[in-house]
Design a binder for these strands. Sequence first.
DNA 1: GTGGCGTCC
DNA 2: CAGAGGGACGCCACT
Length: 681
Amino acid sequence: MLSRDLVTIRRDVPIALELDRLVVSPPDTEELERLFIELEFRTLIPKLDLPELSGAGPVAAVPAPAEAHPAAPAAIVADAAELDRVIAACRRAPLVAIDTATSSPDALRGELVGLALAVGPGASWYLPFAHVAPEGLLAGDAAPRNLPALGSAPLAGIRALLSDAGVPKAGHDAKRDWLVLRRAGATLAGLSYDSMLAAFVIDPGRRSFALDELARDRLGVRLKTRDDLTGRGKTQRALSEVDVTAAARAACDNAEAVLQLRGAFASELEDHHLQPLLDTVELPLVGVLTDMEWAGVLVDRALLAELSRGFTAELVTIERQLYAVAGTEFNLNSTPQLRTLLFEKLQLPVLKKTKTGPSTDYDVLEELAGMGHEVPKLLIAYRELSKLKSTYVDALPGDIHPDTGRIHTSFNQVGAATGRLSSSDPNLQNIPVRTERGESIRRAFIAPPGFRLLVADYSQIELRLLAHFSEDPAFVRAFEQGGDIHRQTAAAIFGVPQDQVTAEMRAQAKTINFATIYGQGPVALARQLGITLDDAKAFIKQYFERFAGVRAWLDRTIAQAREKGYVETLFARRRYIPELKDRNFNIRAFGERTATNSPLQGSAADLIKVAMNRIHAALLETAAGSRMLLQVHDELVFEVPEAQEASAKEVVKRHMEGAASLRVPLVVSVGAGMNWVDAKG
DNA sequence: GTGGCGTCC
DNA sequence: CAGAGGGACGCCACT
């Protein structure tokens, strides 16, 4: 009678109970009572009074991690009537947390195994879709029951729930769930909370944003990870083969933890004024990134194959020459073996050391080459080709999705402590561009027939932000006038009219502008410019005399960071810098560079995120068929129908330049073409 | 898993 | 005294 019934306890929180396993043996009143006590306890969890995170320091006195719910089975929804009750309960709830169980860690490659829905502590359900009997079990023997596919007619109610923007949803890394659900035939709408993003805006420097770690640290709850369920290595099983009750319990615990973390994070989000950043920047971006990853980008497979053949031929030639010099064949990719050749056999001078021995990096090879040695020259050529071949030309085709024929990167929204995105699997934010051969790889990123790639990038966004924050009159004036900022910087430093700035002067000014953004010191500047240390120091002195406001801002920013323990961006994104208090000078100096760089890099990240959100919305309205594909920190790449090129350009430029109103103008250049190189030109 | 190196912004 | 380049990810060799 109790079996799979809805039981209501406390606060009218409806809880579906899967009691099959309890009644296998005769009903046991003691067992049932224990279960009810447990359920009551679970409703109390969010009321636990947890200490706040203070700075980036360790969290004090969190309850020792305990199994989330050691004995209570999760409610596994197995029929239509039950499904209807779940849907009704979700529609009544203020917030529905979701967690998808999938057959692969890669959202776009696996399939939906199950879906957990949670509306409160102890109030969660698991919808099994693709569970199978573990291997070794006899066919038909206790095969897990599954619901029909999420995309099928009987599941229309759940799909309607998921796509109803009026039903607020929550998740942890909801982009992943969004993609999985979309692939399974359902549309997600109404995302209003993501515990991963909440944790990120609260402290972007923390080591991990994994749900199980956050739950352990902030709730004192132990969650089972994917690896816990499937095992690892030789004995690893597919998630679909994991005992459905275990998978269900884990997924439901995850979804419930999302809701509890919302409570745990609430006061800190409020007190640190992070709610607007989360609600108006990061959360809306989830849908944008979902669409970008879903869209993917087209690559010219034949061109990559052709480049691979060409690179191979060149590499063979270089290898032969190097082996001839060495008198033996060896692994040119091995740093230790290379050291033997360069510094023992050939007795070349050691110009730089690493922890483990003499450095063989580009700067060293370049300098040795400048001294007239042939081997380093050959090695530089070898390095470039082998890098491009192994990392891009030969790897990218393997990332082409079999179903779409396109490459779908994954954007990590919590990957960089400054607030930048990162990209992986594959990383499409470091596609070569600098050298001729590098550019040839970028040409393989193309638009499909009838489309054009559109590229828009911010001009000098970090320097503009430096001008904005510092309010340095000369810098602000330079940007207000428009034109070439490095040329203007050179004119100011060298005290000559702009038209008398030589290429070398401009190059030096450009270098010192970037050195300022990165906190580079005189030693590195001297090395980079090939000038003496004294000249570099004099150069820096002159720079900061002309731009005294910049020096003042750098000093002020470091002082405030030391005092408050953190720095902030334009949109109140916060980054803690505990290194400033370190007793080690090098670590402190690193902290100072972090303190001055993070507001610049992070504010630039804020701006492009705002622009992305607005453009995404605008393109849906005005340029249907145009899709945002990639973001590379200060650049956006779109695929637009040929007929929409002009309108899309206008929309993109307007929203990027209008992302915020600063003391200096934001300038964006846009271009279009058949491939990524031509579009940027 | 770590270190060296190299790609991008 | 000298040092003193921010943020990522991937490939390779080696342990």
